[in-house]
Design a binder for these strands. Structure first.
Length: 591
RNA sequence: GCACCUGUAGCUCAGGGGAUAGAGCAACGGUUUCCGGUACCGUGUGGCGGGGGUUCGAAUCCCUCCAGGUGCGCCA
């Protein structure tokens, strides 16, 4: 389906051409002065210099040509040289009826779909998810959904941190606590138990304990390093333990991500990339990309245009061990080999930008990726508390994600039960959905790259630019549609209804807003900016509520007009629902 | 020290070079013969950190200064 802006832009462009000017001057944008017009073209001002003519004169010429066309109700030339446009009601109605027939709600599918891998979540084995993991999960999930909706083939990969010293630490601490386990008996040749020798909560206690101890105790740290090394060498007992750790953790992580409506297509791990490292290293050496510097193997990634020194990308430490960069490069190789992605998007804390600059440059320079493979760093800011400092529990500790979700859910449940009688069980499920909308919308409505303040009171409010307000609007529409369908008796087919030209300003404004879904999604996709979708659906929800308030819908006595209203709000509902789905949450039936 | 990011109304945030810079919250006032008043309407507030510049036109681009944050090879 063609975009409104393109459609009317082409009319205006033709007019420019007819008048003897360049047709590209006919670019039309949504007006920033809604009191004057709905759309505007600034081409006359841009063309003034080119054609040595007063902008207003050009604009007036254009108006003469455009007047009388079917698409516009009003065309006018204003002061310096704006061309102001108002869409004809019939044109708008026709467009909306087309949009209703379109499953994609007017959003064009990519002409050349790309294969995209979104790397998000940032989860580590044996560490519980905490609020620091929220943004990556929420933003990444939305980026994935938006890109997929735009027609790309998208894979979300959790890229689990399951390798390195953290594993050695856990193994070491387990050995201290239960030295008699068969995993630590080198003479043991039988098969190890099926059951893990620990629960998830024990595991979550062990890791921080061991991590702290290693910082205080040199020999303990040495032990952990050795254990890490032996695990990497494939020591049988340690490998079996690692499997246990992995299984227990992944099960728990899945549960937590499920509760956030975050799902990954791939559960690849850092360890999966390890087999690629030896070949990577020899490749970089053989091709002459890498050099030794102070004992470490590095690849220079400086570029002439740099305004700052970019340190070389380190491949191997001076002790020969690999590190974070190495694993990421190996992961890129693995991904290219298995999925041939056109784009890889990393949704990571923005503080890691320099590292990823190094990795991307190195991958490009050493041709691990194709010339046109897109490597994108989507850095997000910190989630702060009301005091502007990183979000903490009341006691000052790190808040676990499940506790945050539970707290918000409790708050929503309280509000729902307080405001009206509800079946406690249904209220629980509703509270869960509303809480999720509060958390996700609160996060996504901010630009990803900026720090933001997680304000529970604000996010859980049903008023203002919040998730619950959007849900409330959807629920309200659902309620009207239920009544309408109920009255009609046997299931009436909403899709057969026709939208008539708008009668009021509010109705037209709603209609115009409905045509802006596609540009909003396209822009959110192109810039990887989910907050654009928040802005849009908030605007749409406002336009709907305004329209709703001054327009009796079900009591409209002209059947065709009433059906038109129903069709209009049904389209509104579909777009709002699609919008929140792109953000990663859904609406209940009632709330 | 160097680099990057941020600085918009009392607070939280939007603003893809264009016309009087916008929302929400908070404050105050109003709206119910009707479909959910957890809604809607209205009132006031800043000239976009300061200063220069480019442009017909700058919150948006460039330079500079100030303030805050972050990062700067053997952690991830």
């Amino acid at each position: 389906m063609q975009q409104v802006l393109d459609l009317i832009g082409s009319y205006v462009g033709e007019a420019f051409e007819t008048a003897g000017y360049d047709r590209t001057l006919g670019k039309v944008t949504v007006s920033n002065r809604p009191d004057l017009c709905e759309y505007q073209c600034n081409g006359a001002m841009a063309g003034a210099k080119l054609y040595h003519k007063a902008p207003i004169a050009i604009a007036e010429e254009l108006v003469e040509i455009l007047e009388g066309g079917d698409a516009f109700e009003m065309v006018s030339a204003v002061r310096p040289g704006f061309i102001n446009l108002r869409l004809s009601p019939q044109f708008l109605a026709d467009y909306l009826n087309e949009e209703r027939k379109d499953e994609r709600l007017g959003v064009p599918a990519a002409e050349h779909p790309r294969t995209v891998i979104v790397d998000y979540g940032g989860a580590n084995v044996a560490k519980p998810l905490h609020v620091g993991h929220l943004r990556s999960a929420v933003i990444g999930e939305s980026i994935k959904r938006i890109s997929r909706f735009l027609g790309n083939q998208v894979l979300g990969d959790v890229h689990l941190g399951d390798w390195g010293l953290q594993m050695g630490l856990i193994i070491t601490e387990l050995r201290h606590r239960s030295p008699d386990l068969p995993y630590f008996d080198d003479a043991f040749t039988g098969s190890y138990p099926e059951e893990a020798p620990f629960t998830i909560s024990e595991l979550e206690e062990i890791y921080p304990f061991a991590s702290k101890k290693s910082k205080e105790d040199e020999s303990y740290k040495a032990e952990a390093l050795e254990a890490t090394h032996q695990l990497q060498m494939g020591k049988r007992g340690y490998y079996a333990l690692w499997q246990h750790i992995l299984n227990v953790s992944v099960k728990d992580l899945k549960k937590n991500y499920d509760s956030l409506s975050v799902t990954f297509d791939l559960w690849k791990k850092e360890s999966d990339a390890q087999p690629y490292i030896p070949d990577l290293v020899s490749y970089l050496k053989d091709k002459g990309y890498a050099r030794y510097d102070q004992g470490a193997l590095v690849v220079d990634v400086e570029e002439e245009t740099d305004s700052k020194k970019i340190p070389p990308c380190m491949i191997l430490k001076s002790d020969g061990a690999s590190l974070y960069n190495t694993t990421d490069l190996a992961t890129i190789i693995m991904r290219m080999e298995n999925w041939q992605p056109d784009d890889i998007i990393y949704v990571v804390d923005k503080r890691q930008e320099l590292y990823f600059t190094q990795v991307f440059r190195c991958a490009r320079k050493t041709k691990l990726v194709k010339e046109d493979t897109g490597l994108y760093f989507l850095g997000f800011g910190t989630m702060n508390g009301k005091d502007g400092k990183p979000f903490k529990t009341r006691e000052g500790g790190v808040m676990r994600l499940e506790n945050l979700i539970a707290d918000i859910g409790e708050e929503m449940y309280r509000k729902i039960m307080e405001n009206h009688e509800a079946d406690p069980e249904e209220a629980r499920e509703t509270a869960r959905l509303v809480a999720l909308s509060a958390i996700k919308y609160g996060d996504l409505s901010n630009q990803a790259s900026k720090d933001y303040i997680f304000d529970v009171d604000k996010f859980t409010s049903f008023e203002g630019n919040t998730g619950p307000y959007i849900l409330y609007t959807i629920v309200r529409i659902k309620s009207i549609l239920r009544r309408y369908l109920g009255e009609a008796g046997d299931a009436k087919d909403l899709s057969s209804l026709t939208i008539l030209p708008p009668l009021s300003d509010a109705e037209k404004a709603l209609g115009l807003a409905l045509t802006r879904f596609a540009p909003a999604v396209l822009s959110a996709g192109a810039d990887r900016a989910p907050h654009r979708i928040c802005n849009y659906i908030y605007e749409l929800a406002n336009e709907f509520n305004r329209f709703y308030h001054e327009t009796p819908i079900l009591t409209e006595n002209q059947p065709a007009q009433r059906d038109s209203y129903i069709a209009l709000i049904d389209l509104t509902k579909r777009i709002l629902e699609c919008g929140i789905d792109l953000l990663g949450f859904e609406a209940p039936e009632r709330m």
